[in-house]
Amino acid sequence: MNSVLLVDDHPAICFALKVLLEQNGDFAVTSSSGESLLAQIHRDTPELLILDLDLKSADGLDLLPRIKHHYPSLKVLIFTNQPAHIYATRTLQAGADGFINKSLPLPMVESLCHLILAGYQCFPNGVMAELNEPYLGQDAQQVLARFSDREIAVLNYLKQGKTNKEIADRLMLSNKTISTYKARIMKKSGIDDLEQLFLLLDEENSS
Rank of each mutant, 00 (worst) to 15 (best):
A12H: 07
A12I: 14
I13P: 00
I13V: 15
C14N: 10
F15T: 09
F15A: 12
F15H: 06
L17H: 06
L17C: 04
K18I: 02
V19P: 00
V19F: 10
L20G: 10
L20A: 12
L20C: 11
L20E: 15
L20V: 09
L21I: 08
L21H: 11
L21E: 10
N24T: 11
N24F: 08
G25K: 06
G25H: 07
D26T: 05
D26L: 13
D26Q: 13
A28I: 15
V29T: 10
T30C: 04
S31F: 09
S33L: 09
S33Q: 13
G34H: 09
S36R: 13
S36D: 15
L37M: 07
L37V: 04
A39S: 13
Q40W: 03
Q40D: 09
I41W: 11
H42K: 15
H42C: 01
T45H: 14
P46V: 11
L48Y: 11
L48D: 09
L49K: 07
L49M: 11
I50A: 03
L51A: 04
L51E: 07
D52K: 03
L53M: 04
L53A: 00
D54Q: 07
D54T: 02
D54I: 00
L55P: 05
L55I: 03
L55M: 04
S57T: 09
S57N: 05
A58E: 13
D59T: 00
D59C: 04
D59Y: 01
D59V: 00
G60C: 03
G60P: 03
L61A: 13
D62E: 10
D62Q: 04
D62L: 02
L63T: 06
L63W: 07
P65G: 06
P65M: 09
